[in-house]
Amino acid sequence: MATYGADYLKRLLAAVERFEEVFERWMETQVESDHATSRGLWPTVWTEEGQDEATVRRLELDVAEVSGAAARAVAVTGAGIGVAGIGVVDPIENWSLMSSPKALFTPREVRTTAARVRGRLSTMIDEAEAGSESTPPGFAPSELHEVIWTAAAAHWTTHQYRVAVREASEALNVHWKERLGRNDVSDTSFWQQTLSGGEPEIGKPKLAWPGPVDDQTVKSMRGGLAPLAGALNNLATGLNLTVRNVATHTRDELTEQEGMERLAAYSYFARLLDQCEIRRSEEEPEST
């Protein structure tokens, strides 16, 4: 099971409590029903007569905003509910479906899910705090680079470690290709061109480690930044070949440990890239 720090879990707990507060404020403007009354064909909530439409819309937006943060807690605790013919659904993230025909769940189920998530988070916080007093700090996937963990989180929390690694690797490729406007080239070629030496061409910007070329950034490095640029190029190619391609083209599941090691490698690579400078051809205006 993934290890989360107590501070992170406490933030999730606060997000769920905030969701409950805002959700109940919105429910005060609604008529509450259930599946038996709606016969499975109608919404399980609808706006009460006489309510100010602008106020209701504002409250709906408030719920939508806080549900985003609270939904992460459902994934972390595995507290979704099963819906026949659909699978596991997160009532907090999909609260607005109660207002649609053939509503999947009721306000009671949203409240029950939130309460179950709070209970599980409280237990996880206690365990995390107790563990931190007796064991070395654990590895927290949530502290990985934002691009990596955002792409991996939903799959990681359902123990699909291979898929989590695949999505994280794809996300980093997409992130930089979109940022540099290079959707015209394959992933491996993109990194080879973007991290290679030489001057950038029009439409082909490069990422370069900052500083003068002859700067001895690392004391033991011979030749300054050039070897480091080549190392980044090799790292990108190596990760694509040994991690991304394997996770994409095979169906062999990874263990949690194997998945963590691969995500950590991509996270480190992502942080190195963040430190690089984007260099464009002098004939090409820098995009915003």
Rank of each mutant, 00 (worst) to 15 (best):
44 T>N: 04
110 V>Y: 03
33 S>Q: 11
32 E>K: 15
21 E>G: 02
86 I>C: 08
225 L>H: 09
105 F>T: 00
9 L>D: 10
272 L>F: 10
75 A>K: 10
284 E>Q: 08
110 V>A: 00
203 G>P: 04
85 G>H: 09
242 T>G: 10
242 T>R: 15
68 G>D: 04
266 Y>A: 13
92 I>A: 11
56 V>P: 00
44 T>I: 07
51 Q>T: 04
57 R>D: 07
153 A>N: 14
152 A>Y: 10
260 M>P: 00
59 L>R: 13
89 V>R: 12
181 G>A: 12
134 S>A: 11
123 T>E: 15
262 R>T: 06
129 E>S: 04
216 Q>A: 13
271 R>K: 15
214 D>P: 05
213 V>K: 09
14 A>M: 06
109 E>Y: 01
180 L>P: 05
11 R>F: 00
224 G>D: 09
156 W>V: 15
158 T>S: 07
272 L>R: 03
238 G>F: 11
137 P>Q: 15
165 V>I: 08
282 E>N: 13
201 E>I: 02
126 D>C: 02
272 L>M: 14
56 V>L: 00
215 D>S: 15
158 T>P: 01
225 L>V: 13
3 T>Y: 12
119 G>E: 15
148 I>D: 11
14 A>K: 15
8 Y>A: 05
16 V>D: 04
47 T>N: 10
232 L>G: 08
268 Y>A: 14
77 T>S: 09
98 M>D: 01
231 A>R: 11
203 G>E: 06
157 T>F: 02
76 V>C: 12
73 A>F: 06
72 R>T: 07
180 L>Y: 09
180 L>G: 08
214 D>S: 14
224 G>R: 04
146 E>L: 12
170 E>K: 07
84 A>G: 04
117 V>G: 06
30 Q>C: 13
52 D>H: 11
276 C>K: 05
70 A>E: 04
233 N>E: 15
34 D>A: 02
274 D>L: 05
199 E>W: 06
50 G>V: 09
15 A>G: 09
174 V>P: 02
65 E>D: 09
4 Y>Q: 12
244 R>W: 05
29 T>D: 08
118 R>T: 03
218 V>H: 01
150 T>D: 15
134 S>E: 12
118 R>P: 03
11 R>W: 00
43 P>F: 07
167 E>W: 08
241 L>Y: 10
257 Q>N: 10
209 W>G: 09
35 H>I: 02
26 W>N: 00
81 I>D: 03
190 F>E: 03
143 E>N: 14
107 P>D: 01
58 R>Q: 14
202 I>R: 08
286 E>F: 11
39 R>C: 05
172 L>V: 14
261 E>K: 07
286 E>Q: 12
276 C>T: 12
84 A>C: 01
272 L>S: 05
270 A>N: 13
17 E>V: 07
117 V>Q: 03
60 E>L: 05
1 M>P: 10
211 G>M: 08
99 S>A: 15
60 E>I: 01
64 A>T: 00
124 M>W: 11
105 F>I: 00
147 V>F: 11
36 A>S: 04
114 A>K: 07
216 Q>H: 12
168 A>L: 14
203 G>Y: 03
35 H>T: 01
280 R>K: 02
245 N>V: 04
199 E>N: 02
13 L>I: 00
231 A>F: 09
258 E>T: 03
221 M>D: 01
131 G>N: 13
